[in-house]
């Protein structure tokens, strides 16, 4: 049995020994990530637990095919943390105070957000390597000028055109998929 399958099955079966092994092996890395990104120890506990619950739900729904349990768990923890930070930011901006956290609600919301993200990623993977490269850095906040220098383009205008074309292409792929209409 593959390692990923072993861990996922253990989570569903409630195999205490293997679940403890998951904590021992993977929790420290998640802890470092969250503490380095404005989190507290209580956040680590919540995020790790929610990530495992997410994996359990997904695997129960349809068996997950993942190459590396560690990498997938880390991605889910990281995304839960991104979502938590974004929500905190929005709450503070809207009301100035943090509401009472309804964790069941936040895990349910995250589950749908993660599904949307995976759908976008799937479409993104269909782009050419050049498009993937240029859009990745564009989405992560690099200016057209920086992209021009970094990827050795001749002018800002060429970069801009390239970004527009690649972005339009991924949107076209998204809109053409029946799942997009279902989730919109």
């Amino acid at each position: 049995m593959q390692e990923s399958e072993k861990y996922l099955q253990a989570l569903i079966d409630g195999d205490n020994k293997i679940i403890l092994d998951i904590y021992n092996r993977f929790h420290p890395k998640i802890q470092v990530f969250i503490l380095r990104n404005n989190g507290r120890h209580e956040d680590v506990q919540d995020v790790f637990h929610d990530a495992l619950m997410y994996l359990i739900m997904k695997h129960r729904e349809s068996p997950l095919q993942i190459a590396s349990f560690e990498a997938y768990l880390f991605t889910i923890c990281k995304n839960i943390w991104r979502s938590t930070l974004k929500n905190k930011k929005e709450w503070v901006m809207k009301d100035g105070v943090l509401p009472l956290v309804n964790k069941e609600d936040s895990l349910a919301t995250f589950t749908i957000e993660q599904k949307h993200l995976e759908f976008y990623q799937e479409k993104f993977q269909l782009l050419s390597d050049n498009c993937k490269e240029i859009l990745s850095i564009y989405f992560n906040g690099m200016s057209y000028e920086e992209i021009m220098k970094d990827l050795s383009y001749n002018s800002i205008n060429v970069v801009r055109q390239r970004v527009y074309k690649c972005r339009a292409k991924v949107v076209q792929l998204i809109k053409a998929d029946f799942r997009y209409k279902k989730q919109a």
Binding site: R82, S83, K86, L117, F124, K175
Partner: peptide, 24 residues
């Protein structure tokens, strides 16, 4: 409106320091 929504979602989804939140 739809185009802008998708662009926005993509930007938030692919930016490591951001996240695209759901319209509940």
């Amino acid at each position: 409106k739809e185009e802008v929504f998708i662009y926005m979602s993509l930007k938030e989804s692919f930016n490591e320091k951001d996240w695209h939140t759901l319209d509940k």
